[in-house]
């Protein structure tokens, strides 16, 4: 202890050197560009960014735009339902697959397959499935039930259900597989012990296995959450934001204003709001998750 410890900056120099590109990318691209966007959201930039500051005018306009408000509401509905349903469905599927059933590989592949498709393909596939003339409605009607009506893509009240169906179809497989991997990591002795004690399987799952799977749940939530915030391509492919603005989402608002409507300032303001929303959720969670560990 008498010799001075080498500065921690100089320990493992090669590893640090190797990390430099990533550090630079993260600072410049993520933090730098985000700050730039926030700064320019206070300007009246149109097609090209101009440093002509305009106070909160863009934010005033943003929050008085009925399309933006509808977008935020739609995302909230989609987000909450997606989070709940993919976790529940993912866990249930994983638990079912974990019953040492025959042909597990087949089922696993079937469930994971949609994830191999992009959101654009998913959107188009579901557009066809839900097309009133060609899809489900048309088939049921052709089978004899003439009054059957199921046309979510053209009814403002149901269109979010269509998005949700397509989103879950595509995304649940991944959650299932992650959960299944987690379940396989649960010590076999726990099951033996619970069987000896005569605890029903569902209770073991809920009270013992789920708490053990906490890290797996956290991973899933992060993945699902990222998918929710950036929801864009599925909407473009499936509904185009319609009918009316019934399936608009914030990311589409940002894109449309930045590129189609040539109003960068408005797009920046909207994307800053998205960033803010993410930070509001992520910071408390990160403090709880990582701050707690240091104390313990």
């Amino acid at each position: 202890m008498s010799t001075r410890r080498p500065s921690s900056l100089l320990r493992n120099p090669m590893a640090k050197l190797a990390a430099v590109p990533m550090v630079v990318t993260a600072t410049v691209v993520f933090i730098g560009c985000s700050l730039w966007t926030v700064v320019y959201s206070f300007t009246d930039s149109k097609l090209l960014p101009r440093a002509n500051f305009d106070g909160f005018a863009q934010y005033d306009r943003l929050w008085s735009s009925s399309r933006w408000i509808a977008s935020v509401e739609n995302l909230a509905i989609y987000g909450i339902l997606t989070l709940l349903l993919s976790l529940t469905l993912g866990f249930v599927f994983a638990a079912l697959l974990d019953q040492k059933i025959r042909g597990e590989n087949v089922f696993r592949s079937i469930i994971l397959y949609p994830y191999a498709l992009s959101f654009i393909v998913t959107g188009l596939v579901w557009q066809w499935i839900l097309n009133p003339d060609l899809g489900i409605q048309g088939m049921v009607r052709a089978a004899g039930w003439e009054s059957f009506a199921f046309d979510p893509l053209n009814s403002p009240g149901l269109v979010m259900v269509a998005l949700l169906m397509a989103g879950l179809w595509q995304g649940t497989g991944l959650v299932t597989v992650i959960m299944l991997a987690g379940l396989r990591g649960v010590d076999e002795d726990i099951w033996k012990a619970s069987r000896v004690d005569g605890i029903p399987a569902w209770k073991t799952y809920l009270l013992v296995v789920v708490p053990i799977l906490r890290p797996v749940f956290v991973t899933s939530v992060v993945l699902i959450g990222a998918g929710i915030v950036k929801l864009y391509d599925l909407v473009v492919a499936l509904t185009g934001g319609g009918p009316g603005n019934a399936s608009e989402v914030p990311a589409k608002y940002v894109y449309d204003y930045m590129f189609a409507n040539q109003n960068l300032g408005q797009g920046f303001a909207a994307s800053t709001m998205m960033l803010l929303a993410v930070l509001v959720i992520v910071i408390p969670w990160a403090v709880l998750e990582f701050g707690g560990k240091r104390r313990g």
Binding site: S66, R67, A70, P156, G241, G242, P243, G244, N245
Partner: peptide, 9 residues
């Protein structure tokens, strides 16, 4: 945007 909303509602 306004007209899309108008015609769908």
């Amino acid at each position: 945007d306004l007209l899309a909303e108008f015609f769908a509602s």
